[in-house]
Amino acid sequence: MWEYTDKVKETFLKPKNVGEIPNADAVGEVGSIICGDALKLFLKIDKETGKILDAKFQTFGCASAIASSSALTEMVKGKTLDEALEISNQDIADFLGGLPDQKMHCSVMGREALEAAVANFRGEPLPQKDEGKQVCKCFDVSEEKIRKVAVENHLTTVEEITNFTKAGGGCGECVPQIELILRDLWSLKPPEKPTTPKRLTNLHRIALIQEIIESEIRPGLQADNGDVELIDIEGNKVTLALRGMCTGCMMSDITLKGIQQKLREMVGGDIVVEAYQ
């Protein structure tokens, strides 16, 4: 069972603004019955001021689709078209106290219906389907939509893309393609981990070990009234002296092993830690 917020449940059970507006000034239609959800948005617009006087919807879909549609109509009423276009899918989700991750596509559908209605009113042609390359055949999702939703919602994984657009949630054939799109989209971001470790000079190596001992190791030991002192570094051999409560502690061997492990991870796999005699 989905973890819907009370607001989602309440809105689903008693949605506002259900129905159609006869002679509506704008109609936006998105989704399809095959994909499992569809939304038809009707707007009454004041031609002078561009304000949305009334909004109604008809929705085929699950509880969160109906709740998102109701939320959208409540949010746009009284706003000008430009103001209304500021509403993001996240705003719709927030209005409902949040949506389960896998249901975020319902809020995206709301946002799309609004865009479609405004385009309809302004007489702008809707972006042609073939303009953006179709990526997901199961749910008819274009590359353009994936890029747009990814940027707007800072999505970095295929799973997130599926939650927000459904793309990749059917046969899964397009998953590698979505991965490529995401890699391309976020490629400006610096890679998190350098792929090959740089060769350290002796000087760098010593400085790095000193720094790790100061910032990573000593605070932990000091918290237990212990301490450690760096005595010498010779090649890959690091000589340490345990101090304070660590002196003569039965666990001292384990403490040194732990430090060695840490240094191996952060400096090099060949580090050997020895106790100062």
Partner: peptide
């Protein structure tokens, strides 16, 4: 036809 199963189930749940 024309309506969605989850919506039906949650209404029945009420």
């Amino acid at each position: 036809e024309f309506i969605e199963g989850e919506a039906i189930l949650l209404r029945l749940n009420e």
